[in-house]
């Protein structure tokens, strides 16, 4: 479903701030894989997701989504294949627009925007049903500005928007990191639910090792812009946080020096 071949990306090349973010990255995702991605700060997790989404171009290498070479496609053209939820709850929705307007925009992802009416009553009815599934009472607030919602509500809405039109690949970039633990739990639960019910292929970056172990069928660990560990199936089910830390130390030859990761075990 997704294939990343030998992708390199260096930021600020040739300056004192030069940062090699992706260093010959290779990764292949199968249909209906739900991969959790962990790694220290600067390991290249978010860069990988941004490269897939086309936020900035790769230096070299290629990216295929569902067999299509998207390496040179602009961000808005790739959106056809991708559903995305960001770390910042403000980023995935248009604050000044209503809930139903945001949903209508998302339901036309990948289609050209015509001079037809932006949404109709049939869609409103469908949106109500879909919002009700979130269990947050948003179904009665179709004409509420999204800016008035809480971070958790906005993130849940973004998740719904990302999957409203079935994406070939769902990209979750630390989408619960900015939420309080209880809300994070709710949004994670919804993510699981959507991915399972719709049989989606998904990638979820997280700083929380427990979440990375508890969710998905496959786990990859990144370091220095490469995948250094790739565990799936039965092996992943038996995984513990200690196993991950040990594996990291062994492979990278250094301590997993990241407070956020250690604290969240």
């Amino acid at each position: 479903m997704l294939e990343i071949k030998n992708v390199y990306k260096t930021f600020n090349a040739g300056t004192i701030n030069e940062k090699r973010a992706l260093n010959g990255l290779n990764l292949k995702l199968n249909e209906e894989d739900f991969v959790t991605v962990i790694g220290g700060n600067g390991a290249g997790k978010s860069t990988m997701l941004n490269m897939i989404a086309g936020v900035y171009p790769v230096d070299s290498g290629s990216i295929f989504v569902d067999g299509v070479d998207v390496t040179r496609l602009s961000e808005h053209k790739r959106a056809k294949y991708l559903g995305r939820v960001f770390q910042d709850p403000m980023m995935g929705t248009a604050a000044d627009m209503w809930i139903e307007e945001n949903l209508a925009l998302a339901s036309r992802r990948g289609q050209s925007r015509t001079l037809r009416w932006a949404l109709n009553n049939q869609e409103r009815k469908e949106f109500k049903v879909q919002l009700a599934e979130l269990g947050l009472g948003l179904e009665d607030r179709l004409s509420t500005k999204v800016g008035l919602l809480s971070g958790g509500q906005r993130q849940a809405l973004t998740l719904l928007m990302a999957t409203l039109k079935r994406p070939k690949l769902l990209l979750l970039d630390e989408h619960t990191a900015a939420l309080d633990p209880k809300t994070a739990e709710t949004v994670l639960g919804l993510s699981d639910k959507f991915i399972e019910e719709e049989h989606l292929t998904a990638m979820m970056v997280t700083h929380n090792m427990r979440d990375a172990i508890a969710h998905g069928n496959r786990l990859i660990m990144m370091n220095d812009g490469k995948v250094i560990l790739d565990i799936s199936g039965e092996e992943k089910k038996k995984l513990t946080v200690e196993d991950l830390l040990q594996a990291f130390n062994k492979i990278s030859g250094s301590e997993f020096a990241n407070d956020r990761v250690l604290l969240s075990k």
């Binding site: 989404a53 961000e75 808005h76 053209k77 959106a79 056809k80 991708l82 995305r84 960001f86 403000m90 980023m91 995935g92 929705t93 248009a94 604050a95 000044d96 627009m97 307007e101 925009l105 998302a106 036309r108 992802r109 990948g110 289609q111 928007m161």
Partner: peptide, 14 residues
Amino acid sequence: RATGCNESMARANG
């Protein structure tokens, strides 16, 4: 309207 309100969101939605 989405473009003026939130460009990241707009592009993510194609």
